[in-house]
Write a protein that binds this DNA or RNA. Structure first.
Length: 344
DNA sequence: AATCCATTCAACCGCCTGGGT
DNA sequence: GACCCAGGCGGTTGAATGGAT
């Protein structure tokens, strides 16, 4: 079947937009809103393809566009999100308010990708390019293959001031276990850490229907999601995340708590960083672990659980050893001591 | 100053998807 | 189910720019 062109090719202008065209487009969208892109050019008096108008608006003229250099935090988020989503630029852009998919894509291709390659990380797989090569201890200048993730870069750059998302995940688990270890029933924590128990069921069905707060883990793209998560691979390969939608006000049956939770999340200034570490799209093909219903109904638990998320975010962004609950780090990855305390 | 080359990024292209009929 | 349409997406292009020679 012959594809119908999105617009008539004759007489349409291409190339860089002029200020006059921008003003026309802005005026039209402000008056009529977004949408109807195919007919917009005629109505707005633009000799442009509707697609071109939409792109110009979405990538450049939209009032909430954030322009300028990417911050270190934004770059970290992009790397983390790319490890999860791959080249799904729009998905990544949704987590970076004010940044467009096109901008992120360009920045990735022109800056981040090169930097990752330079330090020995495959930007496609986020694994070391030196897999299988001899240990770099013989060659101190070559990257260490043990930390075969994109986070090596930030570790290298911020080893004293930042914690990697991986350690954040483990630390988060520690805190949950330490704080709630005496109150959450065993099966719930078994679910969270996937300790091989029967309750590592991936209750995808209930996620979309009855879910409230779902702790959900995402496997690295290179790993099979079908395997039952073990304690170790949870720490190494997975980030604990909380589904955003699950923490909406509708989550909580106690109406008096609704506003509180809304407040907490609206108070989080940097949703980008928060979401890059804890939040994820609720795709149908992703698997979820559910917190026990009883936990969700326990507003006290949910209150503290939410506070942990918030505190964790704050501590990670301005980490100093003095004010962070100590977490033993047995090796280069965090250990999950809290769960041991609980089960011990 | 002139030329060449590399880099950046706005814009385009073609494909895909979902909704409506 | 088939078809059409609108919108969205990722990959690619090419003009503009800056640095090196």
């Amino acid at each position: 079947m012959v594809r119908t062109p999105c617009c008539r090719a004759e007489g349409l202008k291409k190339g860089a937009w002029t200020q006059e065209e921008d003003l026309k487009l802005i005026a039209y969208v402000q008056r009529h809103g977004e949408g109807g892109w195919r007919t917009l050019p005629d109505k707005a008096g633009l000799k442009r393809c509707g697609k071109s108008c939409r792109l110009r608006w979405a990538n450049y003229l939209r009032p909430d566009i954030k322009r300028g250099e990417f911050s270190q935090e934004e770059e970290d988020s992009i790397i983390n999100l790319h490890a999860i989503h791959g080249n799904k630029w729009s998905a990544i852009a949704r987590r970076l308010p004010g940044r467009t998919d096109n901008e992120i894509k360009n920045h990735w291709n022109t800056h981040i990708k090169k930097r990752l390659v330079k330090i020995g990380i495959d930007p496609l797989t986020h694994k070391s390019l030196l897999d299988g090569a001899s240990k770099s201890s013989d060659h101190p200048e070559t990257p260490q293959p043990e930390k075969n993730s994109a986070h090596q870069e930030e570790d290298d750059q911020n080893s004293d001031s930042k914690m990697s998302p991986r350690s954040s995940s483990a630390r988060f688990l520690n805190r949950v276990a330490n704080r709630f270890g005496q109150r959450i029933n065993h099966s719930v924590l078994s679910n969270i850490i996937g300790n091989g128990g029967p309750s590592t069921s991936h209750t995808t069905t209930t996620t979309t229907t009855t879910t409230s707060a779902s702790v959900h883990y995402e496997c690295e793209r290179s790993t099979s999601s079908s395997s039952t998560p073990s304690f170790s691979n949870l720490l190494i390969n997975q980030n604990i995340t909380v589904d955003t939608t699950s923490l909406s006000s509708s989550t909580f049956s106690d109406s008096s708590d609704t506003l509180m939770y809304d407040g907490i999340f609206s108070d989080i200034e940097d949703m980008t960083q928060f979401s890059s570490r804890f939040l994820s799209d609720a795709h149908d093909d992703e698997e979820f672990l559910m917190l026990d219903e009883s936990c969700l109904e326990n507003t006290s638990f949910m209150r503290e659980f939410t506070m942990i998320l918030q505190e964790d975010k704050i501590e990670t962004t301005s980490f100093s050893g003095s004010h962070v609950t100590p977490v033993n780090e047995v090796d280069e990855y965090d250990s999950f001591e809290g769960i041991d305390n609980y089960f011990g």
